[in-house]
Design a protein around this nucleic acid. Sequence first.
DNA 1: GCCAACGTTGGC
DNA 2: GCCAACGTTGGC
Length: 155
Amino acid sequence: MSERPYTHWLMKTEPDTFSIDDLKQRKREPWDGVRNYQARNFMRDGMRVGDKVFFYHSNCAEPGIAGIAAVASEAYPDPSQFDPKSKYFDPASTREKPRWWLVEVKYVRKLKRVITLEELKQQPALVDLPLVRKGNRLSVLPVSADDWDFILALE
DNA sequence: GCCAACGTTGGC
DNA sequence: GCCAACGTTGGC
């Protein structure tokens, strides 16, 4: 069995734009619009089909983990970077050498309740969880297997 | 390569 | 709406 640093992830989304209920309805969705290199690298280089993902609601009344998704495709170039009409259009990117990549994610389930950011911050066991570390604005983050289990036990 | 200016994220 | 904490851009 090959070793990878991470097999569990957390992906942020603003529920006003795309919520866990939207994913439940759509079942599967390309995670387009990521325009940060570190977040891109996690998707392109770190993720494999079947990896579990915490679906996190940000920039809303109750920020926190709202559900579980799974990586459903290998990484491929984000089509929106080539579309001049898209707000994610990147004129500096080319099809020969795409700058931005995405994976598709599929719905797994909603949590019984939202596990809030506030609650996660209060857990001494989660001090090293990247999500609760100061100033971390990345929209795609790794979660250790231990932290994953610990967080789910809070549900 | 430095770094000031600017833009974005996202909690509060 | 405020603003801290970033990341990016571009002049030099």
